[in-house]
């Protein structure tokens, strides 16, 4: 058993385009398309400066799984992710209202 020392654990604040592509096992072009479809909104101006926040990383991972598992195209993924977020927000509102 290996012990990961505290100093070797780092909370990831943002990922670059290259890091995110490697993390999702996809080409950078695919990530760029997600940005074009509005699925991801990186910080920074040019693609070289893009920084993807944790919610963006999660969305990219979800998008990747949805395209793979359900055969959705990018427009479909963008729509599904929007609808899921809308549904989750409504569910949270309902929970706050005590339903």
């Amino acid at each position: 058993m290996r012990l990961a020392n505290r100093e070797h654990i780092e909370v990831i604040e943002t990922l670059t385009l290259t890091e995110l592509s490697a993390f999702c096992h996809v080409q950078a072009d695919w990530v760029t398309s997600l940005v074009d479809y509005g699925v991801l909104d990186p910080l920074g101006g040019d693609a070289a400066d893009w920084r993807f926040s944790p919610p963006n990383v999660l969305r990219a991972r979800k998008a990747r799984r949805l395209t793979h598992d359900l055969g959705l195209n990018l427009a479909g993924v963008a729509l599904v992710l929007d609808l899921i977020e809308e549904r989750d927000a409504l569910a949270r509102k309902l929970a706050q209202l005590g339903y």
Partner: peptide
Amino acid sequence: VVVNVPKGIGEGQHLRL
């Protein structure tokens, strides 16, 4: 792998080991 989870880490965050 033994991981010391930092306090306050939230859903959807990532740890790099």
